[in-house]
């Protein structure tokens, strides 16, 4: 049983189990769920949709994982998505013939830059002024919607620039293009945090900020950095959101994403109490969240109760992931066996 102990003690294990269970459910109850067709050289199907649809959440979850590891939280990422989408749409312009106002790379670069600035604003409030993360980012969460509305003049801007489609709708080698963006960002983040001491410092700050300061770690800069990075991730996420629907809607773009992303991170094994973080776990978490939504609809649950069902499943998954709960259950069944 040594291998079992080793495998089940890995943080990624339980999120993967949850995902596998969801998939297995689909295998039995929703025919066609795993059917993947090739159309026009691209892969189509529910599974591909899940990956495509979870892309914005996955990107947010990468940034949020680091923020949460420092015992922080960033609830402004949904609004930053809208800002990023608004900025890129404004700079590309709604020209019906598809002629961009500014070159695409300038528009995208500016959108990301603005998003990073937004993240730095959060980071400044939290690390320099010492504001509580949830309050600090709540400010931008509210104000960000307003900023996003300003960028689009409170209109929904439609884009007709074909090359911009690729980020949200395009395919490369048969797979959604956004998947590559996620892969690159994930690998870079993993390299930067694990191949340098950054990951250790982030965890140290999250576990014990005072001790981190006394060990000579510049905790303020670390905290500032993770919020800026979260803004960066939200910026990229905003580009993909905008490209997917080829429009920018200051009011609705990215609305509620922050909660899905936080859920993804937590399902992935990173504790809201800060400390050890699991980037890959967060990705699995995002897939769980999206698979769940897709499953619910594919299974034919009426939309009016879908959210409740999702909430229930999330509750079950969270309980299963809690070691304490598992011990409790094991104890319960253990006793019953003895009774028989």
């Amino acid at each position: 049983m040594a291998w079992w102990k080793y495998v089940s003690s890995r943080k990624i294990f339980w999120p993967l189990v949850a995902l596998a269970v969801l998939m297995a459910f689909n295998l039995f109850f929703t025919p066609k769920f795993f059917r993947i067709e090739v159309k026009e050289g691209h892969l189509y199907g529910n599974v591909i949709d899940i990956i495509k649809n979870s892309a914005p959440i996955m990107l947010l979850a990468i940034g949020l994982t680091l923020v949460i590891a420092t015992k922080g939280i960033d609830i402004s990422v949904g609004s930053i998505v809208a800002i990023s989408a608004g900025v890129v749409a404004m700079l590309l312009g709604g020209d019906l013939l598809g002629v961009p106002k500014y070159p695409i790379w300038i528009a995208m670069g500016t959108a990301i830059l603005v998003s990073v600035l937004a993240g730095m604003w959060n980071g400044m409030l939290v690390s320099r002024i010492g504001m509580q993360p949830i309050i600090a980012t709540l400010i931008l969460s509210v104000a960000g919607r307003g900023i996003a509305m300003v960028t689009t003049n409170a209109l929904i801007v439609w884009l007709y620039i074909k090359p911009f489609r690729i980020y949200g709708q395009g395919y490369l080698l048969g797979l959604p293009f956004s998947l590559y963006i996620i892969a690159v960002l994930l690998i870079l983040t993993a390299l930067v945090t694990r191949r340098t001491a950054l990951g250790l410092f982030i965890e140290a700050v999250g576990i014990n900020p005072t001790a981190a300061r006394f060990a000579g770690i510049n905790a303020k800069n670390i905290i500032f950095g993770v919020y800026a990075f979260s803004g960066f991730c939200a910026g990229i996420s905003g580009l993909i959101v905008c490209s997917t629907v080829m429009s920018a809607d200051g009011n609705n773009a990215g609305a509620g994403y922050e909660l899905s992303a936080i859920l993804a991170v937590v399902l992935g094994g990173t504790s809201l109490n800060g400390g050890k973080f699991y980037l890959l776990g967060s990705m699995v978490g995002a897939l769980i969240v999206q698979t769940l939504t897709t499953t619910i609809y594919a299974f034919g649950v009426p939309p009016e109760i879908a959210q409740v069902v999702i909430a229930l499943v999330v509750l079950v998954i969270s309980l299963l992931q809690s070691g304490k709960f598992r011990t409790m259950i094991a104890g319960f069944f253990g006793k019953r066996e003895l009774a028989i």
């Binding site: 005072t210 001790a211 006394f214």
Partner: peptide
């Protein structure tokens, strides 16, 4: 406890 050790590291 509060200024020295990182319990989970």
């Amino acid at each position: 406890k509060n200024e020295g050790i990182f319990a989970e590291l």
